[in-house]
Amino acid sequence: MPAPLIEMRGITKSFGAVKANEAVDLSVAPGEILGLLGENGAGKTTLMNVLFGAYAPDAGEILIQGRPARITSSADALAAGIGMV
């Protein structure tokens, strides 16, 4: 079985005392379509901003095709084939 195309493990991001994401795991297989659903303030946009390099996670890691990826900017994300609208 192939590695997930994108994998986020243990992603945590806080803004002061507010934890927007706490130990979030997410994986997307090749060809899979994924929708993130949740209430306002649930952390969906923050998680995607971490994946796209707009925010640095406080903890956790991102893997692209099973390899650790360092995404610190939108340019890094785009180079890895990750786009955001």
Rank of each mutant, 00 (worst) to 15 (best):
P2S: 15
L5R: 01
I6A: 01
M8D: 13
R9N: 13
R9T: 12
R9H: 09
G10R: 04
I11K: 07
I11A: 09
T12H: 10
K13L: 08
S14R: 15
F15I: 02
F15R: 05
A17K: 14
K19T: 08
A23D: 13
A23R: 14
A23E: 15
A23V: 02
V24S: 14
D25Q: 09
D25W: 05
L26W: 11
L26R: 12
L26S: 11
S27D: 15
S27R: 08
S27G: 02
S27Y: 08
S27P: 02
V28G: 00
P30I: 10
P30T: 06
P30E: 15
P30L: 06
G31K: 00
E32D: 11
I33A: 05
L34K: 15
G35F: 09
L37M: 12
E39Q: 09
E39I: 05
E39M: 06
N40E: 14
N40P: 06
N40I: 05
G41I: 13
G41R: 11
G43D: 10
G43W: 02
G43I: 11
K44S: 13
K44G: 14
K44E: 03
K44N: 12
T46W: 05
T46S: 15
T46E: 14
M48D: 06
M48V: 14
M48E: 10
N49P: 01
L51W: 00
Y55N: 03
Y55I: 02
P57N: 00
D58Y: 13
G60M: 10
I62D: 01
L63M: 08
L63F: 02
I64L: 03
I64K: 11
I64E: 00
Q65T: 11
R67D: 12
A69W: 07
R70P: 04
T72R: 12
S74K: 06
S74C: 07
S74P: 14
D76W: 03
A77G: 00
A77K: 01
A80Y: 04
A80V: 06
A80F: 06
I82C: 02
I82T: 03
G83P: 04
M84D: 12
V85T: 07
